[in-house]
Write a protein that binds this DNA or RNA. Structure first.
Lengths: 148, 148
DNA sequence: TTGCTTGCAAATGATTTGCACTGCT
DNA sequence: AGCAGTGCAAATCATTTGCAAGCAA
């Protein structure tokens, strides 16, 4: 477990404490699994990484962790949702989504481009009376493994 | 929606013909409903706009229209999916998603920014061996109606 | 103890599907 | 006529929830 892992656990514990929630073995296992991967994972994938967890407990723990703001739930297709650590525990990133195999990997853009995007988003939003809080960018295509 | 309704219907009919599918009253009603709105709609919303459609037929027609490439299905949250006309029938756009009421509205960015984005996407993708085909950008926040 | 957490099994709800009927072509 | 499309009701499947038992503060 990397030092980054240790800090993640500390932050998660703090957030749970602040919300009168316990940091149980099961919740720790969920966080460990999410910290290990280089992209958001589905519930079956999570259970493969943490086989001690019952399915219902995995779902319940993810819901609690999402509520206290350390997990984000993503829905790209209609089968399984995907879960990842919140960006304040990782870093702002986007997703490469393979249309062939369904895998999802994280990518980051340059800070300069993100800055430009935020400016553009502020512009188009205010024209609509919309107040943006955050954004997601998904790139769909073919991943390296599925390349023809 | 840039092409007029008539042109949309012509294109849809062509696509269906090419795939040995008929352009029935129900399918036309689906396309009309999707062409009327300024953002992707859910199935209940679609049925409100086209009350003659049975729920199962709406789902089946949307599936057919998606298969022939004139409808796109979006999933932002875990309740109802949303459907919109494919971009070749409208224009390239993104979404403003209200976290309060769940409404979704279309927005466009400047062509210049889209060009810059495509360039950046090509760069980060090739570094991962990924071949991008298209992208989506979603802005989450508070819509005008839900503003505090 | 006291009550949150867990695991199992049953419930929920959006979407899909079987089947008989309708209506294009 | 013949087969694709439709409506209804039943089936599916990810996710949620009720309940009894386990575990942490």
């Amino acid at each position: 477990m990397s030092p980054a892992h240790a800090e993640i656990h500390r932050t998660v514990r703090d957030r749970l404490d602040q919300n009168d929630q316990r940091y149980t073995t099961g919740r720790r296992a969920v966080v460990d699994a999410l910290a290990e991967t280089d992209g958001p994972i589905t519930l079956p994938e999570l259970i493969d990484l943490a086989p001690a967890l019952a399915q219902s407990s995995a779902y319940r723990n993810l819901a609690v962790l999402e509520e206290v703001g350390v997990v984000r739930r993503l829905v790209h297709s209609s089968d399984h949702a995907r879960y990842e650590l919140a960006e304040h525990l990782t870093e702002h990133h986007h997703h490469l989504i393979c249309e062939q195999c369904g895998s999802v990997r994280d990518v980051t853009l340059t800070p300069e481009l993100e800055r430009r995007l935020d400016a553009a988003f502020a512009t188009v939003s205010s024209a609509e009376g919309f107040t943006p809080t955050h954004h997601t960018i998904d790139l769909y295509g073919r991943c390296a493994d599925c390349r023809p």
